[in-house]
Design a protein around this nucleic acid. Structure first.
Length: 356
DNA sequence: AAGATTTGACCAAG
DNA sequence: CTTGGTCAAATCTT
């Protein structure tokens, strides 16, 4: 009896959330066709994401802690920080507060934002954890991990003490391929480096063409294809090049350095963490995951048809290959495309959604 | 001297 | 109990 009531309630809530999401998306569409303030769009996107996420939570019954990811993550790391790029006075903070109170939304989330990146380094290259990803890190530990040949290094943001930045990363050499470094990022930067990133982004906005020309004429090609399959969204981009320090995960890709001779394929693979708010907001948190060697590019999808992301781009320096992925399958994550869109929106609103 | 790294100890989760 | 992650004192580097 109790159970049935509960199920009915959940179904009703699910319907409500999905309906709300749809309505919000329609509102957003209408705003996109008009010159509405960016903040308003952000607000709508945020609400859409929350709606979808809540719907997913209901579907997966995450309230019982069955979240697949959570079992790997210590409970004391459960908090989700508000997206810094929205700011404290952003519309988002309002909704999140309300949602949190209403349904213990965040209570169910025992995870920190977490995703991995594999960086393949040319033989002979330095394989330490200090690979420059645009942020400064301080090593706070190292541990031998069972079943692996190489120790894992633990790094936290240098500004943890001064600015309370909670971002951490783990660095470990791959067993299968010692030239590959597996980077696991956790948490998003809340330090000033985020705003730094945003500033670069703004500069990029204003000088996009100039930058592109200076760096590598004709390198930026709009022909990117997003192919979504069960295995994940794939973004293929040919000859991407520009400079942009951007935010993970969606549309930030390493770019080609100016004097890059050793040109190789750059594979960027991002799968979204299912049913996780932080995934939705990952792009605006200022994650370093997609950053590399200070040269980045923010791109936008031309069309979106499924989930997951692989990005081929002309090399970053030294013919490095990066594979970025979130730990959980994206198959169950209908919000995957939102993940990709939100950052894009922040940067180039006109590309949001499935429009191109 | 201040900041970064190393490394053994500690703790929570499974 | 085992394991991954973090702490913090000792040590090193700038």
């Amino acid at each position: 009896m109790e159970k049935r009531k509960s199920m009915e309630w959940e179904q009703k809530s699910l319907t409500n959330e999905l309906t709300q999401g749809k309505e919000l998306a329609e509102q957003l569409m209408s705003h996109l066709h008009h010159s509405s303030p960016q903040e308003k769009k952000d607000f709508l996107i945020s609400k859409i994401l929350f709606s979808y996420d809540k719907a997913l939570s209901l579907l997966t019954g995450s309230g019982d802690g069955s979240d697949g990811e959570s079992k790997h993550i210590p409970a004391h790391e459960s908090m989700l920080e508000p997206p810094t790029s929205f700011g404290n006075n952003s519309p988002l903070s309002g909704i999140s507060d309300q949602d949190c109170k209403d349904k213990n939304f965040f209570k169910k989330r025992k995870t920190m934002p977490r995703w991995t990146k594999e960086v393949k380094v040319s033989p002979g290259a330095e394989l330490d954890g200090s690979l420059d990803d645009g942020y400064s890190w301080r090593k706070y530990g190292q541990k031998d991990i069972l079943g692996t040949n190489h120790p894992r290094g633990y790094y936290r943001c240098t500004h943890r003490g001064t600015q309370g930045c909670i971002a951490t990363k783990q660095v470990q050499k791959s067993d299968a391929d010692p030239t590959t470094i597996v980077l696991t990022y956790r948490g998003f930067h809340t330090c000033s480096q985020v705003s730094q990133s945003a500033r670069v982004k703004e500069e990029f906005k204003g000088n996009q063409n100039k930058t592109l020309e200076v760096e590598k004429p004709n390198q930026f090609s709009p022909e990117m294809s997003f192919s979504f399959g069960r295995a994940g969204l794939r973004v293929k981009t040919d000859h991407l090049d520009t400079r942009e320090n951007d935010i993970f995960p969606s549309f930030s890709f390493p770019s080609t350095p100016i004097e890059s001779e050793d040109v190789g394929d750059h594979i960027f693979c991002a799968t979204m963490m299912e049913n996780n708010l932080m995934d939705n907001y990952a792009p605006v948190f200022g994650s370093p995951a997609a950053t590399f060697e200070s040269d980045y590019l923010t791109v936008s999808p031309c069309h979106v048809s499924s989930f997951g992301l692989v990005h081929d781009v002309q090399t970053s320096e030294s013919g490095l290959t990066e594979i970025i992925s979130a730990p959980t399958s994206v198959t169950n994550s209908p919000i995957g495309d939102f993940d990709f869109s939100i950052d894009d929106l922040e940067f180039r609103p006109d590309y949001f959604g499935l429009k191109c």
